[in-house]
Design a protein around this nucleic acid. Sequence first.
DNA 1: GCCGTCTACGCAACTAGTTGCATAGCAACG
DNA 2: CGTTGCTATGCAACTAGTTGCGTAGACGGC
Lengths: 179, 179
Amino acid sequence: MALEHAILVSLAEKTASGYDLARRFDASIGHFWKASHQQIYKVLGRMESDKWVESHLVAQDNRPDKKVYSITGEGRDELMRWSSVPTPIEPLRSEFAVKLRGTQFGDRDAVLADVRVRRAAHEAQIAYYEASAQRHYPDPSSLREDELGAYLVLRGGILAEHTGMAWCDEILQAFEAER
Amino acid sequence: MALEHAILVSLAEKTASGYDLARRFDASIGHFWKASHQQIYKVLGRMESDKWVESHLVAQDNRPDKKVYSITGEGRDELMRWSSVPTPIEPLRSEFAVKLRGTQFGDRDAVLADVRVRRAAHEAQIAYYEASAQRHYPDPSSLREDELGAYLVLRGGILAEHTGMAWCDEILQAFEAER
DNA sequence: GCCGTCTACGCAACTAGTTGCATAGCAACG
DNA sequence: CGTTGCTATGCAACTAGTTGCGTAGACGGC
């Protein structure tokens, strides 16, 4: 579904090999849409048959050849078409929420330890995002048009992580109050 | 992965047929873990082979027979074991974020229309959750132990929806400022 | 009397994504 | 000189979840 389009967006910004894409999906775009390299290669193959992308082999010194993909006109059309269709609202899906709900049937202390770990992870992620924002968008009041999307996505990540942390705090407080 | 455990939690609270579970997954638990009835029946079958649940047929008047499932001792053990293993931190996965990031390659106005739709959906969900909180937990300062988990999950939902709405507002503002 | 909806269960075919493995040359470390 | 790690691509087998369909009786509305 969206992996195709995430790849199209990424290739529209800059051509890349499957390997390059896999690295991008470990960073920037990947913070909001994960993909393994296996999945990327699989989907790239399909996208090439669909003529959304095209590839050419590039020989390199001291490194394996690579297949560099670029987006086609059809790929850009698809991106346009896709952007004009409303995105289905994806329901939350949290294994942790299930566990929290079932705390009474489980190991309370383990769940609380888990909450603390998650809180720390949110905190670290905020620091990472903030640093990234500082570095790439030091002045958010004057963004180039081509930066706006990525900046807003980063903002979404920051907001979500703050919320995650606030939730953890609320959980810890509630359990401490109960004890 | 988690569907099994969501079902175990649900059955630990109260025995149910596959159909009952499907309805619960359309409401309460389902707000944080969706599942179709097909998937539920499939997983219930596996769980019965694994001895985590057991079923017996119940005949009904004017209605089809139903298979009522209940959790077994082994099922409760599994729930305990699962709760003591840290939950892997699930990365966000948002098709909408991908689209937002690619706005420059798409239909800007359509994306903004989408944002407005999503904002309204968040607003509606907040109203729904708040009503649910009011009804089930009118006094959050004194919750029974068996209510705490479900309450905190609901709180998580409320926090997440508020964040979703705030993000939409930020996006709308940024695009309006740009124009 | 037909149509839609609800209860209740399930199979079959498909798609998306994960896990494990394979290949292969080069560079850096000890 | 062996091990680890990076670049680079991909297949095979599996799991989870979706979509579409089928069955079947009861109830209510028009």
